[in-house]
Amino acid sequence: MNKVENGNHLTVDEIEIKLLLDAIFLKYGYDFRNYSRASIKRRITQHKTIAGYQKLSDLQHQILVEEPAFRKLLHDLSVNVTEMFRDPLFYKKFRTDIVPILQTYPFVRLWVAGCSTGEEVYSLAIILYEEGLRERCQIYATDLNESVLKRAKTGIFPISKIKEYTTNYIQAGGSEQFSDYYTARYDSAIMKKFLKDKIVFSSHNLAIDGVFNEMQVVTCRNVMIYFNRKLQNRVVTLFRDSLCTGGFLCLGKKETMKFLSCEKDFIEIADQERIYRKHKS
């Protein structure tokens, strides 16, 4: 047998990470192989330490034979840090530049891809309500992580965050009483039912799943920063194919269509807020 020279010079750690990601894909179908390595490695290493594994190979064996161990790892692999009206100026722009165009449609479908615990979904629902679009819109909120979706569905957030969210809401151009949108119970703020009614929460994995409806708006903010170029290209192609002509794609503050395969299919309409519009193909 010939020995193949390995030009990559992978360290033992890197090889074990690669094997672990392969194991996850082969056993459970979740594909983290095209995530940015530095970040995924950090999260795996943290999980290893907190969950008390000596070696990555121990972790690999355990998640292969025990699904609950895998679910715990899965929870730690995705970044679930979010807030309501995060980057308020984006939401302000959404209200001034996107909403008037949405108002010309008889029915509006919006997809929040990678919605995590739902804070940004409820933020959008509030704006749509205030702008009179509630009765003719449907928000699809998806994530690959079932446990955060469950939390998103409850619409319960820590009351300690409400002060910050209220400030964000006002900076985002909100002019109503923010307290009208939730009920305070002990240390929780529970979002009102009329906001939840317009949201469908569902599992969807951007790395492997496909188009499920035609959308007027897709928001996917601070999700693609965790993907490598190959996966980013897959995901923006999926968004392009999901959007109607003239539909809007909203990315995170530090995300861009530059250098991505579908760049030519979109026009940038707000460079600071990273809002793009699909033009006629």
């Binding site: 940015s36 390595r37 530095a38 970040s39 979010t82 601070n222 920063i225 965790y226 995170g252 530090k254």
Partner: peptide, 21 residues
Amino acid sequence: APANYHLMVEKNMTLSLSTGQ
């Protein structure tokens, strides 16, 4: 590094951002 993002270095000489804790 931009405000509010972690900045990370990849082995292929590129930079990554994260909004982790």
